[in-house]
Write a protein that binds this DNA or RNA. Structure first.
Lengths: 156, 156
DNA sequence: GTACGATAGTCAACGTGGTTGACCAAATAG
DNA sequence: CTATTTGGTCAACCACGTTGACTATCGTAC
């Protein structure tokens, strides 16, 4: 039950603050490691592209945005040198989107930093509570938000 | 410790998914209750303006954005009928920003819906785990994100 | 083998939310 | 009274999203 000293709007605020804390820490660290131009969304995009690569349309589905929005995001990351486009030999309509070496480096460093940050939280809260937090969120979050149900997030 | 099956980037993803789940549910319900044009940020802005009102500069500080950005957001909410500007009789430079009746209604309904959503989470997870989740996030989230330390969020 | 519908991508116009820099008017400190 | 600080606005710009229209290609059905 929501008590007066725990109004319901504290919950979204805390979730957002927790998210932003991680993201801010991540990008501070990435900037230190040679990726100062990586912006908050970019990490998720690199993750969603993944090592095997994808297409703009597929990427849009994974991110839960339109193919046009995904295409524009790819444009920016291509300009920054993190992604590259290639033709699909099997289907002339499709344009493959792949990580460049720099993109792969950014993705790997993001993953490593996130792991470190998770460890830092575990050091503060205890590993069991971080795991419980993840379990709880997984139980209540809608799977179609950020398409957690679409393959590509937790795979390769 | 971050194990292979619990990569660190699952944590921000789940936090974001949890946040978006709440926000999406909130706005679906608000649209049903006569506020279809309220957008995700607006609830936080109304909350940050609060019943006593504030100024654009103060609002920017509370939201952690520039005064210009806060001013533009106020413009939009004035156009939608949720906020109104007034002159400060004590200081001709300051322009007070206040909730209109419609704004107050939106704020109250947002708070009520958030309370209901928190109860729904409590029904799924158990009230103690929701409270633990809030406690944990409060312990690790940086207070200057969304200026949780600035008065106006959890007061009137 | 050709015609047609579904699919992949792009272009254009627009809205929203943010930034920085310049500027003005009013308050305040010396 | 002058100089500085403060509150607000304007302008230009960028990131990220939307919808609608359009082109090119693929696959199928006749």
């Amino acid at each position: 039950m929501a008590t007066p000293d725990r109004p319901g709007f504290a919950l979204p605020l805390l979730l957002l603050a927790g998210f932003r804390t991680l993201i801010d820490d991540l990008h501070a660290e990435l900037a230190r490691q040679g990726h100062p131009d990586l912006r908050p969304v970019h990490g998720f995009v690199l993750q969603a592209v993944g090592v095997p690569g994808t297409t703009a349309g597929e990427l849009g589905q994974r991110l839960g945005v339109s193919k046009q929005a995904a295409g524009k995001t790819v444009d920016r990351l291509v300009a920054l040198g993190y992604l590259e486009r290639a033709d699909d030999p099997a289907d002339a309509r499709r344009k493959l989107v792949r990580l460049t070496d720099r993109g792969l480096d950014g993705l790997r460093r993001s993953a490593a930093v996130f792991d470190q940050l998770r460890d830092r939280w575990a050091a503060t809260l205890g590993a069991d509570r971080v795991a419980a937090l993840e379990d709880d969120l997984h139980a209540v979050a809608q799977p179609n938000v950020f398409r957690l149900d679409v393959p590509g997030w937790f795979g390769t």
